[in-house]
Computed example of a mutant assay.
Amino acid sequence: MPGPVHKIGVSLAAAALAILTAASPATAETAASAARQAEPAAYFVMTDVTDEQFVIQLTDPDKIQHARDLLSGATLDRPHVIGRIAKWPVPYNPRWSYHYQPETVNFFDNAIEVCDATIPYVEDHLDEAGGAFLPGLVWCPWSSRLVRELPAR
């Protein structure tokens, strides 16, 4: 008959197994997340009806591929850019006082009017963005389109 030490050992082993089993999915998710973050960012130039140029950073491999497919003509689906802006400049887009937050960038066919504005209009009204103008800082210029990918940095 097992003694108290054996029972404690079995209990500790069961607890360790439970912890490792519970941690496995998180470890797999962490590894997948690290692999996605290890992917280099890609930079694309977009324009709009004003012909101004605005640089966006993409970090999601699927979105990078979609952007490349748009530029190559492999797809015409979801040609316009949407995302949440941040009200400060970034080194890759120095001309403008704002930028898209890379993790929020996506593509669309049609969007609601409240998020539509041209590149210079956003710059000129940046202090109003996040209120009635571009609620939630979501910007979806209807005439946006990618024009080229910038070389890797």
Results as ranks from 00 to 15, higher is better:
Ala38Gly: 04
Thr104Gln: 12
Glu149Ile: 07
Leu150Ile: 01
Gln65Lys: 13
Asp69Arg: 00
Pro61Glu: 07
Ala74Leu: 02
Leu20Ser: 14
Val10Ala: 09
Gly9Ser: 15
Gly130Cys: 00
Phe108Val: 03
Phe133Pro: 03
Arg148Leu: 07
Val122Asn: 04
Cys115Ile: 02
Ala67Val: 02
Val55Asn: 11
Ala13Thr: 14
Pro135Gln: 11
Ala14Ile: 07
Phe44Trp: 07
Pro2Ser: 12
Ala117Tyr: 06
His6Asp: 06
Met46Val: 00
Tyr121Ile: 05
Pro120Arg: 07
Lys7Phe: 09
Ala23Met: 11
Gln65Pro: 05
Gly73Asp: 08
Phe44Gln: 09
Pro91Lys: 05
Thr30Ala: 13
Trp142Thr: 09
Ile119Val: 06
Asp69Leu: 01
Phe54Asn: 04
Ala38Ser: 13
Leu17Ala: 15
Glu29Lys: 10
Ala28Phe: 11
Ala26Val: 01
Val105Thr: 13
Ala32Trp: 13
Ile56Leu: 08
Val10Gly: 04
Ser97Ala: 10
Val105Ala: 10
Ile56Val: 07
Ala86Gln: 06
Ile82Tyr: 04
Arg148Glu: 15
Ile8Tyr: 08
Ile82Ala: 10
Ile85Cys: 00
Ala41Trp: 00
Thr104His: 10
Ala31Leu: 15
Pro141Arg: 01
Gln37Asn: 15
Phe108Leu: 11
Ile85Tyr: 12
Glu52Gly: 00
Ile19Arg: 07
Leu126Trp: 10
Arg95Phe: 09
Tyr121Phe: 15
Ala38His: 09
Pro151Ala: 04
Ala132Val: 01
Ala18Trp: 12
Pro94Met: 03
Cys115Ser: 11
Gly136Phe: 01
Glu149Ala: 10
Phe107His: 11
Pro102Trp: 11
Pro79Ile: 06
Ala18Lys: 04
Asp62His: 06
Thr75Ile: 06
Ala13Met: 14
Ile8Leu: 12
Lys7Leu: 13
Thr50Cys: 05
Val45Met: 02
Lys7Glu: 15
Ser143Trp: 08
Met1His: 14
Thr30Glu: 12
Gly9Ile: 01
Tyr43His: 13
Thr118Ser: 15
Pro135Cys: 00
Glu128Ser: 11
Arg145Thr: 06
Leu71His: 00
Glu113Thr: 05
Thr118Met: 03
Arg145Tyr: 11
Ala13His: 09
Ala132Phe: 12
Lys87Phe: 05
Thr30His: 15
Gln37Glu: 14
Glu52Ala: 14
Asp48His: 02
Pro151Leu: 01
Trp88Gly: 10
Gly130Pro: 06
Ala111Gly: 15
Trp88Gln: 12
Ile85His: 04
Arg95Lys: 14
His80Cys: 09
Asp60His: 15
Pro91Ser: 10
Ile82Glu: 01
Lys87Asp: 07
Val45Ser: 08
Ser97Cys: 03
Pro89Leu: 03
Gly136Val: 02
Phe44Cys: 08
Lys7Asp: 15
Val105Glu: 13
Arg36Ala: 11
Cys115Lys: 06
Ala16Ser: 14
Phe108Ser: 05
Tyr100Cys: 02
